[in-house]
Write a protein that binds this DNA or RNA. Structure first.
Lengths: 243, 243
DNA sequence: TTCCTAGGTTAACACCGTTAAGTAATGGAA
DNA sequence: TTCCATTACTTAACGGTGTTAACCTAGGAA
Protein backbone atom coordinates (compact mmCIF):
# COMPACT_ATOMS: atom_id res chain seq x y z
CA UNK A 1 0.00 0.00 0.00
CA UNK A 2 2.14 2.86 -1.28
CA UNK A 3 -0.66 5.30 -0.83
CA UNK A 4 0.67 6.92 2.30
CA UNK A 5 4.00 7.43 0.59
CA UNK A 6 2.26 9.05 -2.32
CA UNK A 7 0.30 11.24 0.05
CA UNK A 8 3.49 12.28 1.73
CA UNK A 9 5.05 13.07 -1.62
CA UNK A 10 2.08 15.17 -2.67
CA UNK A 11 2.13 16.98 0.62
CA UNK A 12 5.79 17.83 0.17
CA UNK A 13 5.19 19.00 -3.38
CA UNK A 14 2.43 21.29 -2.22
CA UNK A 15 4.71 22.66 0.47
CA UNK A 16 7.29 23.35 -2.19
CA UNK A 17 4.72 25.05 -4.36
CA UNK A 18 3.73 27.35 -1.53
CA UNK A 19 7.34 28.23 -0.78
CA UNK A 20 8.07 29.00 -4.42
CA UNK A 21 5.02 31.18 -4.79
CA UNK A 22 5.80 33.00 -1.56
CA UNK A 23 9.41 33.51 -2.57
CA UNK A 24 8.45 35.09 -5.85
CA UNK A 25 5.85 37.36 -4.34
CA UNK A 26 7.99 38.40 -1.39
CA UNK A 27 10.91 39.08 -3.69
CA UNK A 28 8.70 41.18 -5.93
CA UNK A 29 7.00 43.37 -3.41
CA UNK A 30 8.37 42.64 0.06
CA UNK A 31 7.07 40.66 2.98
CA UNK A 32 4.54 43.10 4.36
CA UNK A 33 2.95 43.87 1.03
CA UNK A 34 2.13 40.26 0.21
CA UNK A 35 -1.00 38.68 1.65
CA UNK A 36 -1.73 35.07 2.42
CA UNK A 37 -4.74 35.28 0.14
CA UNK A 38 -2.45 36.30 -2.71
CA UNK A 39 -0.03 33.48 -2.16
CA UNK A 40 -2.94 31.10 -2.13
CA UNK A 41 -4.41 32.54 -5.29
CA UNK A 42 -1.13 32.21 -7.16
CA UNK A 43 -1.14 28.44 -6.66
CA UNK A 44 -4.92 28.20 -6.99
CA UNK A 45 -5.73 27.39 -3.41
CA UNK A 46 -7.61 29.23 -0.73
CA UNK A 47 -5.54 31.19 1.76
CA UNK A 48 -6.52 28.89 4.56
CA UNK A 49 -5.03 25.92 2.79
CA UNK A 50 -1.61 27.34 3.56
CA UNK A 51 -2.22 26.93 7.25
CA UNK A 52 -2.17 23.19 6.88
CA UNK A 53 1.48 23.48 5.88
CA UNK A 54 2.75 26.46 7.86
CA UNK A 55 1.63 27.66 11.25
CA UNK A 56 1.39 31.27 10.10
CA UNK A 57 2.79 33.82 7.69
CA UNK A 58 5.87 34.40 9.79
CA UNK A 59 6.71 30.72 9.96
CA UNK A 60 6.38 30.51 6.20
CA UNK A 61 8.79 33.40 5.82
CA UNK A 62 11.20 31.93 8.32
CA UNK A 63 11.30 28.60 6.54
CA UNK A 64 11.89 30.42 3.28
CA UNK A 65 14.85 32.28 4.76
CA UNK A 66 16.22 29.14 6.35
CA UNK A 67 16.40 27.49 2.96
CA UNK A 68 17.76 30.46 1.15
CA UNK A 69 20.49 30.90 3.71
CA UNK A 70 21.71 27.46 2.76
CA UNK A 71 21.39 28.30 -0.92
CA UNK A 72 23.30 31.47 -0.23
CA UNK A 73 26.17 29.53 1.32
CA UNK A 74 26.35 27.33 -1.77
CA UNK A 75 27.13 30.32 -3.93
CA UNK A 76 30.20 31.05 -1.88
CA UNK A 77 31.43 27.51 -2.03
CA UNK A 78 31.12 27.54 -5.80
CA UNK A 79 32.82 30.92 -6.16
CA UNK A 80 35.99 30.05 -4.27
CA UNK A 81 36.39 26.57 -5.71
CA UNK A 82 39.40 27.32 -7.89
CA UNK A 83 40.64 30.34 -5.99
CA UNK A 84 44.44 30.59 -5.89
CA UNK A 85 44.61 32.18 -2.43
CA UNK A 86 42.52 32.78 0.68
CA UNK A 87 42.83 36.50 0.12
CA UNK A 88 41.26 36.19 -3.30
CA UNK A 89 38.66 33.88 -1.81
CA UNK A 90 37.55 36.56 0.60
CA UNK A 91 37.35 39.06 -2.22
CA UNK A 92 35.36 36.66 -4.36
CA UNK A 93 33.03 35.90 -1.47
CA UNK A 94 32.51 39.61 -0.97
CA UNK A 95 31.65 40.05 -4.62
CA UNK A 96 29.22 37.15 -4.53
CA UNK A 97 27.57 38.62 -1.46
CA UNK A 98 27.20 42.02 -3.07
CA UNK A 99 26.04 40.48 -6.30
CA UNK A 100 23.32 38.64 -4.46
CA UNK A 101 22.14 41.81 -2.76
CA UNK A 102 22.13 43.54 -6.10
CA UNK A 103 20.25 40.85 -7.93
CA UNK A 104 17.67 40.04 -5.28
CA UNK A 105 17.24 43.23 -3.28
CA UNK A 106 13.91 42.33 -1.76
CA UNK A 107 15.21 38.93 -0.85
CA UNK A 108 18.28 40.45 0.70
CA UNK A 109 16.09 42.79 2.67
CA UNK A 110 14.08 39.85 3.89
CA UNK A 111 17.11 37.90 4.99
CA UNK A 112 19.30 40.64 6.43
CA UNK A 113 17.32 43.77 7.09
CA UNK A 114 13.98 42.81 8.55
CA UNK A 115 13.69 41.73 12.11
CA UNK A 116 12.90 38.10 11.76
CA UNK A 117 11.96 36.08 14.77
CA UNK A 118 15.07 34.37 15.98
CA UNK A 119 15.52 31.23 13.92
CA UNK A 120 18.74 29.47 14.80
CA UNK A 121 19.96 27.14 12.08
CA UNK A 122 18.98 23.53 12.32
CA UNK A 123 21.19 20.73 13.51
CA UNK A 124 23.15 19.99 10.37
CA UNK A 125 23.44 23.60 9.30
CA UNK A 126 25.05 24.94 12.39
CA UNK A 127 28.55 23.87 11.58
CA UNK A 128 28.64 23.11 7.89
CA UNK A 129 30.34 25.84 5.83
CA UNK A 130 28.53 24.54 2.77
CA UNK A 131 25.18 25.31 4.31
CA UNK A 132 25.86 28.19 6.66
CA UNK A 133 27.34 31.31 5.14
CA UNK A 134 28.69 32.63 8.40
CA UNK A 135 30.52 29.41 9.13
CA UNK A 136 31.90 29.61 5.62
CA UNK A 137 33.22 33.10 6.23
CA UNK A 138 34.66 32.01 9.54
CA UNK A 139 36.55 29.19 7.86
CA UNK A 140 37.90 31.66 5.35
CA UNK A 141 39.19 33.85 8.16
CA UNK A 142 40.87 30.89 9.79
CA UNK A 143 42.59 30.14 6.49
CA UNK A 144 43.70 33.74 6.25
CA UNK A 145 45.20 33.57 9.71
CA UNK A 146 46.92 30.28 9.19
CA UNK A 147 48.38 31.47 5.93
CA UNK A 148 49.67 34.59 7.68
CA UNK A 149 47.67 36.83 5.38
CA UNK A 150 45.88 38.70 8.10
CA UNK A 151 47.37 41.59 10.00
CA UNK A 152 49.20 40.27 13.04
CA UNK A 153 47.07 42.04 15.63
CA UNK A 154 43.87 40.47 14.33
CA UNK A 155 43.69 37.44 16.58
CA UNK A 156 39.97 37.07 17.24
CA UNK A 157 38.45 34.98 14.46
CA UNK A 158 34.87 35.95 15.11
CA UNK A 159 35.67 39.62 15.52
CA UNK A 160 37.49 39.60 12.19
CA UNK A 161 34.69 37.70 10.48
CA UNK A 162 32.10 40.07 11.84
CA UNK A 163 34.11 43.09 10.79
CA UNK A 164 34.26 41.75 7.27
CA UNK A 165 30.60 40.93 7.26
CA UNK A 166 29.79 44.36 8.61
CA UNK A 167 31.65 46.16 5.88
CA UNK A 168 30.12 44.14 3.09
CA UNK A 169 26.67 44.31 4.57
CA UNK A 170 27.05 48.05 5.00
CA UNK A 171 27.73 48.54 1.33
CA UNK A 172 24.84 46.32 0.31
CA UNK A 173 22.37 47.77 2.76
CA UNK A 174 23.13 51.41 2.07
CA UNK A 175 22.21 50.71 -1.52
CA UNK A 176 18.75 49.57 -0.58
CA UNK A 177 17.93 52.42 1.75
CA UNK A 178 19.50 55.34 0.03
CA UNK A 179 19.57 54.55 -3.66
CA UNK A 180 16.03 55.73 -4.25
CA UNK A 181 16.36 58.84 -2.10
CA UNK A 182 16.61 60.84 -5.26
CA UNK A 183 19.22 63.10 -6.74
CA UNK A 184 19.85 65.40 -3.78
CA UNK A 185 22.51 62.98 -2.69
CA UNK A 186 25.19 62.18 -5.25
CA UNK A 187 25.05 58.45 -4.81
CA UNK A 188 27.99 56.82 -6.54
CA UNK A 189 27.42 53.85 -8.86
CA UNK A 190 27.01 50.49 -7.16
CA UNK A 191 30.09 48.89 -8.64
CA UNK A 192 32.29 51.76 -7.58
CA UNK A 193 31.00 51.65 -4.03
CA UNK A 194 31.19 47.89 -3.84
CA UNK A 195 34.76 47.66 -5.04
CA UNK A 196 35.77 50.58 -2.85
CA UNK A 197 34.28 48.81 0.16
CA UNK A 198 36.23 45.66 -0.59
CA UNK A 199 39.38 47.64 -1.25
CA UNK A 200 38.99 49.28 2.15
CA UNK A 201 38.48 45.88 3.67
CA UNK A 202 41.63 44.24 2.33
CA UNK A 203 43.77 47.32 2.79
CA UNK A 204 42.94 47.53 6.45
CA UNK A 205 42.99 43.88 7.36
CA UNK A 206 45.62 42.18 5.24
CA UNK A 207 49.26 42.02 6.12
CA UNK A 208 50.36 42.87 2.59
CA UNK A 209 47.85 45.43 1.28
CA UNK A 210 49.47 45.88 -2.13
CA UNK A 211 49.35 42.20 -2.90
CA UNK A 212 45.85 41.97 -1.47
CA UNK A 213 44.65 44.68 -3.82
CA UNK A 214 46.01 42.72 -6.74
CA UNK A 215 44.05 39.74 -5.45
CA UNK A 216 40.96 41.87 -5.44
CA UNK A 217 41.56 42.87 -9.06
CA UNK A 218 41.90 39.26 -9.99
CA UNK A 219 38.72 38.41 -8.09
CA UNK A 220 36.88 41.06 -10.08
CA UNK A 221 37.95 39.21 -13.20
CA UNK A 222 36.97 35.80 -11.82
CA UNK A 223 33.49 37.01 -10.77
CA UNK A 224 32.83 39.51 -13.52
CA UNK A 225 29.08 39.60 -13.02
CA UNK A 226 29.43 40.00 -9.28
CA UNK A 227 28.18 36.47 -8.89
CA UNK A 228 24.98 37.20 -10.71
CA UNK A 229 24.92 33.96 -12.60
CA UNK A 230 24.09 30.57 -11.20
CA UNK A 231 20.32 30.82 -10.96
CA UNK A 232 19.75 27.44 -9.46
CA UNK A 233 16.58 29.18 -8.41
CA UNK A 234 15.42 29.94 -11.93
CA UNK A 235 15.95 26.35 -12.95
CA UNK A 236 13.86 25.17 -10.07
CA UNK A 237 11.11 27.63 -10.92
CA UNK A 238 10.85 26.62 -14.58
CA UNK A 239 10.93 22.93 -13.87
CA UNK A 240 7.99 23.62 -11.58
CA UNK A 241 5.98 25.06 -14.44
CA UNK A 242 5.56 21.64 -15.96
CA UNK A 243 3.09 20.54 -13.31
CA UNK B 1 -8.47 89.62 16.69
CA UNK B 2 -5.69 87.18 17.48
CA UNK B 3 -8.01 84.21 17.48
CA UNK B 4 -6.74 82.79 14.25
CA UNK B 5 -3.19 83.08 15.52
CA UNK B 6 -4.17 81.21 18.66
CA UNK B 7 -5.89 78.58 16.55
CA UNK B 8 -2.75 78.19 14.52
CA UNK B 9 -0.69 77.84 17.67
CA UNK B 10 -3.01 75.20 19.08
CA UNK B 11 -2.93 73.36 15.83
CA UNK B 12 0.84 73.33 15.86
CA UNK B 13 0.93 72.16 19.48
CA UNK B 14 -1.39 69.30 18.67
CA UNK B 15 0.81 68.36 15.75
CA UNK B 16 3.77 68.29 18.10
CA UNK B 17 1.86 66.19 20.57
CA UNK B 18 1.07 63.63 17.90
CA UNK B 19 4.67 63.49 16.75
CA UNK B 20 5.96 63.02 20.28
CA UNK B 21 3.48 60.26 21.05
CA UNK B 22 4.26 58.53 17.77
CA UNK B 23 7.98 58.81 18.34
CA UNK B 24 7.76 57.17 21.74
CA UNK B 25 5.53 54.35 20.56
CA UNK B 26 7.49 53.68 17.39
CA UNK B 27 10.74 53.68 19.33
CA UNK B 28 9.28 51.25 21.84
CA UNK B 29 7.82 48.70 19.55
CA UNK B 30 8.60 49.57 15.95
CA UNK B 31 6.56 51.14 13.19
CA UNK B 32 4.44 48.19 12.15
CA UNK B 33 3.42 47.22 15.64
CA UNK B 34 1.98 50.62 16.49
CA UNK B 35 -1.55 51.49 15.42
CA UNK B 36 -3.11 54.84 14.71
CA UNK B 37 -5.72 54.11 17.37
CA UNK B 38 -2.97 53.68 19.92
CA UNK B 39 -1.25 56.92 19.03
CA UNK B 40 -4.59 58.66 19.32
CA UNK B 41 -5.33 57.08 22.66
CA UNK B 42 -2.02 58.14 24.12
CA UNK B 43 -2.86 61.79 23.55
CA UNK B 44 -6.56 61.27 24.31
CA UNK B 45 -7.90 61.76 20.85
CA UNK B 46 -9.65 59.48 18.44
CA UNK B 47 -7.53 57.88 15.76
CA UNK B 48 -9.29 59.82 13.04
CA UNK B 49 -8.25 63.13 14.61
CA UNK B 50 -4.71 62.39 13.46
CA UNK B 51 -5.80 62.53 9.86
CA UNK B 52 -6.46 66.22 10.18
CA UNK B 53 -2.75 66.69 10.76
CA UNK B 54 -1.12 63.97 8.68
CA UNK B 55 -2.36 62.44 5.47
CA UNK B 56 -1.70 58.91 6.67
CA UNK B 57 0.46 56.81 8.94
CA UNK B 58 3.34 56.79 6.50
CA UNK B 59 3.38 60.56 6.19
CA UNK B 60 3.44 60.83 9.97
CA UNK B 61 6.41 58.51 10.09
CA UNK B 62 8.18 60.36 7.31
CA UNK B 63 7.77 63.69 9.06
CA UNK B 64 9.11 62.14 12.24
CA UNK B 65 12.19 60.88 10.43
CA UNK B 66 12.69 64.18 8.68
CA UNK B 67 12.92 65.95 12.02
CA UNK B 68 15.08 63.37 13.68
CA UNK B 69 17.52 63.45 10.81
CA UNK B 70 18.11 67.08 11.63
CA UNK B 71 18.41 66.26 15.32
CA UNK B 72 20.85 63.54 14.38
CA UNK B 73 23.06 66.01 12.53
CA UNK B 74 23.16 68.24 15.58
CA UNK B 75 24.80 65.52 17.60
CA UNK B 76 27.68 65.40 15.16
CA UNK B 77 28.15 69.13 15.21
CA UNK B 78 28.33 69.10 18.99
CA UNK B 79 30.73 66.16 19.08
CA UNK B 80 33.39 67.64 16.81
CA UNK B 81 33.23 71.14 18.24
CA UNK B 82 36.59 71.06 20.02
CA UNK B 83 38.19 68.36 17.93
CA UNK B 84 41.92 68.88 17.34
CA UNK B 85 41.96 67.31 13.89
CA UNK B 86 39.66 66.24 11.06
CA UNK B 87 40.80 62.68 11.55
CA UNK B 88 39.65 62.70 15.14
CA UNK B 89 36.45 64.41 14.01
CA UNK B 90 35.64 61.52 11.72
CA UNK B 91 36.32 59.07 14.53
CA UNK B 92 34.15 61.03 16.92
CA UNK B 93 31.37 61.25 14.37
CA UNK B 94 31.56 57.50 13.89
CA UNK B 95 31.28 56.95 17.61
CA UNK B 96 28.32 59.28 17.87
CA UNK B 97 26.65 57.46 15.02
CA UNK B 98 27.19 54.08 16.61
CA UNK B 99 26.16 55.40 20.00
CA UNK B 100 22.90 56.62 18.54
CA UNK B 101 22.20 53.25 16.97
CA UNK B 102 22.97 51.60 20.25
CA UNK B 103 20.81 53.87 22.35
CA UNK B 104 17.81 54.09 20.05
CA UNK B 105 17.79 50.86 18.09
CA UNK B 106 14.17 51.04 17.02
CA UNK B 107 14.64 54.61 15.98
CA UNK B 108 17.73 53.73 14.03
CA UNK B 109 15.85 50.94 12.34
CA UNK B 110 13.14 53.38 11.40
CA UNK B 111 15.53 55.90 9.94
CA UNK B 112 18.04 53.65 8.20
CA UNK B 113 16.68 50.17 7.77
CA UNK B 114 13.06 50.42 6.76
CA UNK B 115 12.14 51.35 3.24
CA UNK B 116 10.66 54.73 3.72
CA UNK B 117 8.98 56.45 0.84
CA UNK B 118 11.49 58.77 -0.73
CA UNK B 119 11.52 61.95 1.30
CA UNK B 120 14.15 64.33 0.03
CA UNK B 121 15.18 66.90 2.62
CA UNK B 122 13.47 70.26 2.54
CA UNK B 123 14.90 73.42 1.14
CA UNK B 124 17.05 74.61 4.05
CA UNK B 125 18.20 71.14 5.00
CA UNK B 126 19.65 70.13 1.71
CA UNK B 127 22.94 71.92 2.12
CA UNK B 128 23.30 72.72 5.79
CA UNK B 129 25.76 70.43 7.57
CA UNK B 130 24.13 71.35 10.85
CA UNK B 131 20.84 69.89 9.74
CA UNK B 132 21.81 67.18 7.30
CA UNK B 133 24.07 64.45 8.59
CA UNK B 134 25.25 63.41 5.15
CA UNK B 135 26.26 66.93 4.25
CA UNK B 136 28.10 67.07 7.55
CA UNK B 137 30.01 63.92 6.72
CA UNK B 138 30.76 65.24 3.29
CA UNK B 139 32.24 68.41 4.75
CA UNK B 140 34.36 66.31 7.03
CA UNK B 141 35.71 64.40 4.06
CA UNK B 142 36.52 67.63 2.27
CA UNK B 143 38.45 68.77 5.32
CA UNK B 144 40.32 65.47 5.38
CA UNK B 145 41.28 65.90 1.76
CA UNK B 146 42.34 69.49 2.10
CA UNK B 147 44.42 68.66 5.14
CA UNK B 148 46.10 65.88 3.21
CA UNK B 149 44.92 63.28 5.69
CA UNK B 150 43.23 61.05 3.19
CA UNK B 151 45.02 58.50 1.07
CA UNK B 152 46.15 60.12 -2.14
CA UNK B 153 44.11 57.92 -4.46
CA UNK B 154 40.84 58.81 -2.74
CA UNK B 155 39.75 61.69 -4.91
CA UNK B 156 35.98 61.27 -5.09
CA UNK B 157 34.45 63.05 -2.09
CA UNK B 158 31.08 61.34 -2.31
CA UNK B 159 32.56 57.92 -2.86
CA UNK B 160 34.74 58.35 0.21
CA UNK B 161 31.86 59.67 2.29
CA UNK B 162 29.66 56.79 1.24
CA UNK B 163 32.36 54.25 1.98
CA UNK B 164 32.69 55.66 5.49
CA UNK B 165 28.96 55.70 5.97
CA UNK B 166 28.69 52.16 4.70
CA UNK B 167 31.23 50.82 7.14
CA UNK B 168 29.68 52.53 10.12
CA UNK B 169 26.19 51.62 9.09
CA UNK B 170 27.27 48.03 8.57
CA UNK B 171 28.51 47.75 12.11
CA UNK B 172 25.37 49.34 13.52
CA UNK B 173 22.96 47.37 11.39
CA UNK B 174 24.54 43.99 11.93
CA UNK B 175 23.97 44.52 15.61
CA UNK B 176 20.25 44.90 15.14
CA UNK B 177 19.77 41.91 12.90
CA UNK B 178 22.11 39.41 14.38
CA UNK B 179 22.46 40.24 18.03
CA UNK B 180 19.35 38.36 19.02
CA UNK B 181 20.04 35.37 16.81
CA UNK B 182 21.08 33.50 19.90
CA UNK B 183 24.27 31.82 20.98
CA UNK B 184 24.96 29.67 17.92
CA UNK B 185 26.91 32.59 16.54
CA UNK B 186 29.67 33.96 18.77
CA UNK B 187 28.72 37.58 18.40
CA UNK B 188 31.47 39.79 19.77
CA UNK B 189 30.58 42.61 22.15
CA UNK B 190 29.30 45.78 20.61
CA UNK B 191 32.14 48.01 21.68
CA UNK B 192 34.73 45.67 20.31
CA UNK B 193 33.01 45.45 16.96
CA UNK B 194 32.39 49.17 16.80
CA UNK B 195 35.97 50.14 17.54
CA UNK B 196 37.27 47.48 15.19
CA UNK B 197 35.08 48.86 12.41
CA UNK B 198 36.41 52.35 12.96
CA UNK B 199 39.95 51.07 13.20
CA UNK B 200 39.48 49.36 9.85
CA UNK B 201 38.09 52.55 8.45
CA UNK B 202 40.98 54.81 9.39
CA UNK B 203 43.62 52.23 8.63
CA UNK B 204 42.39 51.81 5.09
CA UNK B 205 41.56 55.38 4.24
CA UNK B 206 44.03 57.62 6.03
CA UNK B 207 47.42 58.53 4.69
CA UNK B 208 49.12 57.98 8.02
CA UNK B 209 47.40 54.95 9.60
CA UNK B 210 49.49 54.91 12.79
CA UNK B 211 48.71 58.49 13.61
CA UNK B 212 45.09 57.96 12.64
CA UNK B 213 44.78 55.10 15.10
CA UNK B 214 46.05 57.34 17.84
CA UNK B 215 43.38 59.84 16.85
CA UNK B 216 40.83 57.11 17.21
CA UNK B 217 42.06 56.30 20.70
CA UNK B 218 41.77 59.93 21.64
CA UNK B 219 38.26 60.08 20.17
CA UNK B 220 37.30 57.14 22.35
CA UNK B 221 38.34 59.23 25.33
CA UNK B 222 36.51 62.31 24.11
CA UNK B 223 33.27 60.42 23.51
CA UNK B 224 33.51 57.86 26.29
CA UNK B 225 29.83 56.99 26.31
CA UNK B 226 29.77 56.62 22.53
CA UNK B 227 27.80 59.82 22.32
CA UNK B 228 25.01 58.57 24.49
CA UNK B 229 24.62 61.81 26.35
CA UNK B 230 23.00 64.91 25.01
CA UNK B 231 19.37 63.93 25.27
CA UNK B 232 17.95 67.07 23.83
CA UNK B 233 15.08 64.71 23.20
CA UNK B 234 14.60 63.82 26.85
CA UNK B 235 14.59 67.49 27.74
CA UNK B 236 11.95 68.14 25.16
CA UNK B 237 9.85 65.27 26.42
CA UNK B 238 9.90 66.37 30.05
CA UNK B 239 9.20 70.00 29.25
CA UNK B 240 6.19 68.71 27.38
CA UNK B 241 4.82 67.12 30.52
CA UNK B 242 4.09 70.53 31.99
CA UNK B 243 1.14 71.14 29.68
C1' DT C 1 -29.38 86.13 16.56
C1' DT C 2 -28.09 83.12 12.92
C1' DC C 3 -24.84 81.06 10.03
C1' DC C 4 -20.47 78.99 8.81
C1' DT C 5 -16.56 76.56 9.59
C1' DA C 6 -12.65 74.23 11.86
C1' DG C 7 -11.80 70.33 14.36
C1' DG C 8 -13.27 66.92 16.36
C1' DT C 9 -16.54 62.49 16.94
C1' DT C 10 -18.70 57.78 15.83
C1' DA C 11 -19.84 54.42 12.28
C1' DA C 12 -18.52 52.10 8.59
C1' DC C 13 -15.55 50.12 4.70
C1' DA C 14 -12.30 47.11 2.74
C1' DC C 15 -8.77 44.30 3.79
C1' DC C 16 -5.63 41.71 6.75
C1' DG C 17 -4.00 37.20 9.39
C1' DT C 18 -6.16 33.57 11.41
C1' DT C 19 -9.72 30.18 13.26
C1' DA C 20 -14.10 27.56 13.23
C1' DA C 21 -17.16 24.85 10.95
C1' DG C 22 -18.42 22.23 7.17
C1' DT C 23 -17.50 19.07 3.01
C1' DA C 24 -15.82 15.87 -0.35
C1' DA C 25 -12.67 12.20 -1.24
C1' DT C 26 -10.18 8.19 0.22
C1' DG C 27 -8.61 3.96 2.30
C1' DG C 28 -9.23 0.39 5.82
C1' DA C 29 -12.44 -2.41 8.92
C1' DA C 30 -16.90 -4.65 9.56
C1' DT D 1 -20.55 -3.71 0.34
C1' DT D 2 -21.19 -0.51 3.99
C1' DC D 3 -19.49 2.38 7.42
C1' DC D 4 -16.28 5.22 9.63
C1' DA D 5 -12.23 8.02 10.48
C1' DT D 6 -8.88 10.75 8.42
C1' DT D 7 -7.07 14.01 5.40
C1' DA D 8 -7.02 18.07 2.81
C1' DC D 9 -9.33 21.32 1.48
C1' DT D 10 -13.37 25.02 1.34
C1' DT D 11 -16.37 28.92 2.93
C1' DA D 12 -17.77 31.90 6.73
C1' DA D 13 -16.57 34.49 10.27
C1' DC D 14 -13.73 37.08 13.96
C1' DG D 15 -11.11 40.65 15.66
C1' DG D 16 -8.05 44.09 14.22
C1' DT D 17 -5.95 47.36 10.81
C1' DG D 18 -5.61 52.01 8.04
C1' DT D 19 -8.70 55.06 6.26
C1' DT D 20 -13.08 57.55 4.78
C1' DA D 21 -17.86 59.18 5.19
C1' DA D 22 -21.23 61.23 7.81
C1' DC D 23 -22.37 63.67 11.55
C1' DC D 24 -21.83 66.81 15.48
C1' DT D 25 -20.60 71.05 17.95
C1' DA D 26 -18.27 75.03 19.96
C1' DG D 27 -17.41 79.64 18.77
C1' DG D 28 -16.16 83.64 15.73
C1' DA D 29 -18.50 86.50 11.75
C1' DA D 30 -22.49 88.52 9.66
Amino acid sequence: MGTSERRERERLAMREQILDAARELFAERGYQAVTMREIGKRIEYSATALYGHFADKETLMTELCRRDFADFAQRFVAAVQDSPSPVESVCRAGLVYLGFAEQFPQHYRLMFMSDMPESPPQEGEREDPKRNAYVFLRHLVVQLMEGGHLRADLKDVDLAAQTIWGIVHGAAALELIIAKQGPWLDFRPRRERFTEALRTLVRAMMRDPEQAERRLESALVAIPDFGTAPAKKAARATSKKKN
